[in-house]
Design a protein around this nucleic acid. Structure first.
Lengths: 73, 73
DNA sequence: TTTAAATTCTGACTATAGTCTTCAAGGATA
DNA sequence: TATCCTTGAAGACTATAGTCAGAATTTAAA
């Protein structure tokens, strides 16, 4: 089965695309590097909870919703 | 107001005490270092989401519940 | 009080989160 | 074709998550 990082990456990419923004725009919104967003989406990094909160806010979704989605599947 | 790390630390300590276990026992349960649990509880570190999941499981609470509690206050 | 258990503190260390630069690859569009 | 936009990728780097050993301090019982 997929790792936590990979599953987080899928969720992140889905949410970003649903918001219709590029990795670069998302990175700017949450004050992170564009290449790091790429790493996250490909499951090559896992965020700290502080970074989770920044990303969730930029994507206009509660951080707990992302975590909840990680708990299933 | 308190930082995310400090608020996480308080939640962690409350949950651990509710479970009636020591930092050392908790650390053993989630395969982390005892001094690191101490750092977390004092708000001097923030966990990655992987570490959050390990801690939550040891404390028998859904990770999303901890995050949800962080969203309020 | 003293002893033991629990936690804090220090400091040095390893692993990994997160940055930055630059270039290459792929998909649109003209 | 040529150009633009977006993402992937390499590599070197900085910041911080997480470890480890041990001493100092606090807390709770005896």
């Amino acid at each position: 089965m997929k790792s936590l990082e990979e599953r987080f990456g899928e969720i992140l990419r889905n949410l970003r695309e649903k918001n219709g923004i590029t990795q670069e725009a998302l990175a700017a919104d949450c004050d992170l590097d564009r290449t790091y967003i790429s790493l996250l989406e490909r499951g090559l990094r896992q965020p700290t909870i502080g970074t989770l909160f920044k990303i969730a806010e930029a994507l206009k979704v509660p951080p707990s919703k992302i975590i909840k989605e990680l708990e299933s599947n």
